[in-house]
């Protein structure tokens, strides 16, 4: 177990973070090169003011007509995404591991809070799954990859929850937690999870077009 633990927390973690950050950087640079080569006009339409205006409305729950049109989805998706980002980054166990490796850490959440946030993420994933199956307009555009991606995102939270509560097979669950977290990190730049990076950019461009050229709101 020492060998496995050493491997997943050592080299595998390095690989995961390198692929995650490197991958995001690669996607960003690749995008900018593509814009420059093929659609350089995009740069000339980008406006900081209108980008932020648009992003601000859309990152505000109920800040847009469409958010108000789907109140349950809005609450779930905001709760899901906030917890998804906050819980792992501010989890005490993660901060401790980071501090042990690098000599500095950051303030972390009480475990109880992180525990609830994890449950929210899992519940959100279940909601998305059910929504995918139940809503015809979502099911029509759903492919296997959508379920796989949802599982990839949910896995670290499910395994983390089980490991934290030491429900069963603690050691293996922790290893599964670490590995599934790494899989998720690596998946982000190379799958549709890349919306983490691209969504603000597409929003910014549409916001710039609507604000600067079309003099209309896009929310």
């Amino acid at each position: 177990m020492h060998a496995i633990y050493g491997w997943v927390t050592g080299p595998l973690t390095w690989i995961a973070f390198l692929l995650f950050f490197g991958g995001l950087l690669y996607r960003l640079v690749q995008l900018l090169i593509l814009v420059r080569r093929k659609e350089p006009f995009i740069f000339s339409y980008m406006s900081l003011k209108y980008s932020l205006r648009s992003i601000l409305h859309w990152i505000l729950p109920f800040g847009t007509v469409n958010w108000r049109l789907h109140p349950v989805m809005t609450i779930v998706t905001f709760a899901f995404h906030i917890c998804l980002l906050v819980a792992p980054v501010f989890l005490m166990a993660h901060a401790i591991l980071f501090e042990e490796a690098w000599g500095f850490g950051w303030p972390s959440l009480p475990d109880v809070a992180a525990d609830w946030m994890t449950l929210i993420v899992i519940a959100g994933a279940v909601f998305f799954l059910v929504r995918r199956i139940v809503r015809p307009e979502v099911r029509f555009v759903t492919s296997t990859s959508d379920y796989v991606l949802l599982a990839v995102v949910a896995a670290p939270f499910v395994t983390g929850f089980i490991a934290y509560h030491q429900l069963f097979a603690y050691r293996w669950m922790l290893v599964a937690h670490i590995v599934s977290g790494q899989v998720m990190l690596v998946a982000i730049p190379f799958t549709r999870l890349v919306h983490m990076l691209f969504a603000p950019l597409t929003r910014a461009y549409t916001g710039s077009e609507f604000g600067g050229v079309r003099h209309a709101v896009d929310w």
Binding site: L31, L34, E39, V141, R192, H195, A199, T202, Y205
Partner: peptide, 13 residues
């Protein structure tokens, strides 16, 4: 170019 690629890659269905 970029718009097509990013729009297709970003849409989460």
């Amino acid at each position: 170019g970029a718009r097509l690629k990013v729009y297709v890659d970003t849409c989460v269905h």
